[in-house]
Design a protein around this nucleic acid. Structure first.
Lengths: 191, 191
DNA sequence: GCAGAAATTTGACTCAAGTCAAATAATCAC
DNA sequence: GTGATTATTTGACTTGAGTCAAATTTCTGC
């Protein structure tokens, strides 16, 4: 696990029991079936979705083509930041790639607890910080690496994505065509 | 000005005078000469730099090539998020492109005020949220637009960048070669 | 186990954008 | 102003990655 995420988790676990109790009042669990959507364009994203079991992804459509921006596994948080923060309709889908179980952290309840306890506000801020830095790195990958380098980096940093997901989705995450990804893989295999 | 940034500014102005006074104790102004660096790789970024006068940019080097990630004008905040948040050595330069005057917001002082006043923590969080969403949009531009479309979008969203900066820097911001940018411009001019 | 569907690979061709080199144009120092 | 330096444009060529089409492999349900 990323050390910053680990720090956020540790701090969360050490919160005052009183606060934890209040927080959990705003959590509830929900199951989604494979291929169903947790969020669609046009909806406002009013919660954070903490993945308990299964795999999900976020993607958007551009000229009929799907572009996957994130893949979520156990303990990852799925959210359309843009929609959640700006309180405007989302332009992305969040989709269950398998049977999925999530904990839903509702905005309004969470917001109240944050305003009361600055420790919670701080944890929320740390989560966004992590997100911002993650985006910065991902942008850098697109600016500096070609298709095969991006694939190798993914293999190194997120092997689960490569192992568990179909080529279509891996390709859309790397922003290359199916065919190119297939060629990259065969070239690597033949080395 | 972006509406979310406007909201942050309005809220800042409406802070309790007591808080404002404490905050300003941690601010100080500094001048930089053209082509000097406000931050270099290896240094830890321990402050936010609020531009009062002049233009600056952030860039990194990749295989000898400079890649400009952001350009800062009056009222923009320059910071290496990665270094500032993770408290680790930066891998970017922040450079004065003109004579430059900035207000330096020191980490440790700012941190103290944030822990005391949750309104300030909240404003800081809003700033990061803005940053994260900005990065998300910029990433999307690289994933969906070709070189000329990126140029046209920059012209539309940040005309000052195109008007005030040399082609070298505009090209490195769009992540295209000098020559390609030059060809894009001549093609657009001849329409 | 087999037919049909879906996913993946391979081939042939195209094109956006890069590189290297040379030519202009703009800017600066004196 | 003039020559020198720097910035920008133009030309010729190369290449990474896309598209469309066909072949092959893998996965289904029955």
């Amino acid at each position: 696990m990323n050390p910053y995420i680990k720090r956020i988790k540790d701090l969360s676990n050490r919160l005052d029991p009183q606060i934890l109790a209040e927080l959990e009042g705003g959590f509830f669990d929900k199951k989604f079936s494979k291929e169903s959507y947790l969020l669609r364009p046009g909806q406002i994203c009013t919660s954070h979705l903490l993945v308990k079991e299964g795999v999900a992804r976020k993607f958007y459509k551009h000229n009929e083509k799907e572009i996957t921006t994130e893949v979520y596994f156990h303990d990852d948080v799925a959210v359309s930041l843009d929609s959640y923060i700006m309180r405007k309709p989302a332009d992305v889908y969040i989709e269950a790639l398998t049977e999925l179980e999530v904990t839903i952290i509702d905005y309004s309840k969470f917001h109240k607890v944050k305003s009361t306890y600055s420790e919670v506000m701080m944890l929320d801020k740390m989560f966004i910080e992590y997100y911002a830095v993650w985006f910065e790195h991902r942008l850098k990958e697109f600016q500096t690496l070609d298709a095969s380098q991006r694939y190798l980096k993914l293999l190194e940093k997120e092997p689960k994505v490569v192992q568990l997901l179909p080529v279509t989705i891996i390709a859309s995450y790397l922003n290359v065509s199916l065919e190119t990804l297939s060629r990259i893989r065969s070239k690597i295999a033949s080395r």
